[in-house]
Simulated scan of single mutants.
Amino acid sequence: MKDSLPGFNTRAIHAGQEPDAATGAVIVPVHLTTTYKQDGVGGLRGGYEYSRSANPTRTALQEALAALEQGTTGMAFASGLAAEDTLLRTVCEPGSHIVLGGDAYGGTFRLISRVLSRWGIEHTPADLNDADALRAAVRPTTRVIWCETPTNPLLNIADIALTAEVAHDAGALLVVDNTFASPYLQQPLTLGADVVVHSTTKYLGGHSDVVGGALVVADAELGERLAYHQNAMGAVAGPFDAWLVLRGLKTLGVRMDRHQDNAARIVDFLEGHPAVARVLYPGLPDHPGHGIAARQMSGFGGMISFRLAAGEEAALKVCERAQLFTLAESLGGVESLIEHPGRMTHASAAGSPLEVPGDLVRLSVGIEDVEDLLADLDQAMTL
């Protein structure tokens, strides 16, 4: 972080969120308007003419996102996948190639393999931690290396700086999905990434009450191209959704601290449980990406996956028996969630190189009292 920047929590509360000039309101208003009065033909007030193109509430969120990720331009979308689709249709064309991390979110895989493939875009899964395999996957037509770190749901860690070097040597962009870490724990643009993607539905919103997505870029010219397509394609965040994410940003730091503290206690519990074959968490010293995570992250996050020794049926039973951990998709909210990725969030990857193990359970650890969470897991895992 640059020494001249205010601290993270200060930026989260204030960046793009000055008190309202007209009223002094300290919270950004929800500008529920579709259009704006012009002072003569082409005489726009503050650059606003139509809310698909720009809305003051969305502008505030976009400025805050850029400040938190230390980028030049932030853009807010109707969902994370809307952000991904806009990005890939901007920087790719028919015949382009994408190198996709071998452990990627099922929705991203579905978008690239089943939607964009019909538009002539090809992809190759690759192990991002194997530099030789990564370089071998790159083609002359590669335009993007797509990286999640930590990954969903296997919690693998990619070396962002190394992956950026490979991408740039090939004339490609490095895109990092930073949803699991959040900008509180990791700022990929400072490590060489070109674009950061978020599902703002998750930790940034933080309360399971809004669906949204975001892009933040390092290069202002790329930001201009993406902003043009954001308007032209139209999948923008509405003003109330933008306001909800802004509200979530204000407490992101304190929430992430609690998510991580609870996760660490739960990892200790799972590590000692006889029903668990393996715990996947980058904070564990024996995690293969622990050293990289410790270097490029300021903490290890609130997501945990684990594998059951008794196999898939045991994993399903644990998910069904949990009570305080709600059986549900999504993640990053204040409440704890449990899911079976193979049959839920990653079902679209079944039968592909990105298929996840059937014995895998994923936890999104919330901010409840950790003793209650431990008791719930204890009873759920009494098989």
Rank of each mutant, 00 (worst) to 15 (best):
L204P: 00
C147K: 00
P150C: 11
V217A: 02
T200S: 13
A214N: 10
H198Y: 15
E221R: 15
A218L: 12
N156W: 14
S208L: 10
E221C: 02
G206A: 09
A167P: 05
V176I: 05
W146H: 13
P188N: 01
P188E: 00
T190G: 12
N152M: 13
L155R: 14
S199A: 14
A158Y: 11
W146D: 11
T142Y: 01
L154G: 07
L185P: 00
V176E: 01
T179A: 00
P150F: 15
N178F: 00
A161W: 10
P140V: 05
T163P: 01
T151I: 08
A214E: 04
R139H: 06
Y203L: 02
H207M: 07
S182T: 13
V175M: 06
T142V: 07
L191N: 06
C147F: 03
A218D: 12
P183N: 00
E221I: 07
G192V: 05
R143A: 12
A164G: 15
T163Y: 04
T200K: 01
L204G: 00
L215C: 11
P188Y: 01
N178K: 01
L215I: 11
G171W: 06
N152L: 14
A172C: 06
S182L: 03
R139G: 03
V217Y: 07
S208R: 15
D209N: 14
G171F: 04
T201N: 07
E221S: 12
D194K: 08
V175Q: 06
H168I: 07
G205V: 03
L162K: 13
T201L: 08
A172L: 09
P188D: 01
G206S: 10
L162W: 05
T200L: 09
G213W: 15
A220Q: 13
H168L: 09
I160T: 13
A218V: 03
G206R: 07
A164Q: 05
D177G: 10
Q187Y: 01
L173K: 05
A214G: 13
V195A: 10
P153C: 13
T149A: 05
D194L: 06
D169K: 07
D159S: 13
D159W: 08
I157W: 11
V197Q: 09
R139A: 05
V144S: 08
V197C: 12
D194N: 11
L191F: 04
R143I: 08
L155N: 15
V138F: 03
V176P: 04
G192W: 14
L154A: 12
D159G: 08
A172D: 06
H198A: 00
P150V: 15
P153A: 14
P188R: 01
D159V: 08
A167F: 14
D169E: 14
A220G: 08
V216R: 06
V216K: 05
V216H: 10
V217G: 02
G206K: 05
P188V: 01
G192H: 14
Y203V: 02
A167L: 09
E148R: 11
T201H: 14
Q186V: 04
A181Y: 02
D209M: 02
T163W: 08
A164M: 08
V175I: 12
A158C: 10
S208I: 06
L189W: 07
P153T: 13
W146P: 07
E148W: 03
V217P: 02
V175G: 06
D169V: 05
P140L: 02
V166S: 09
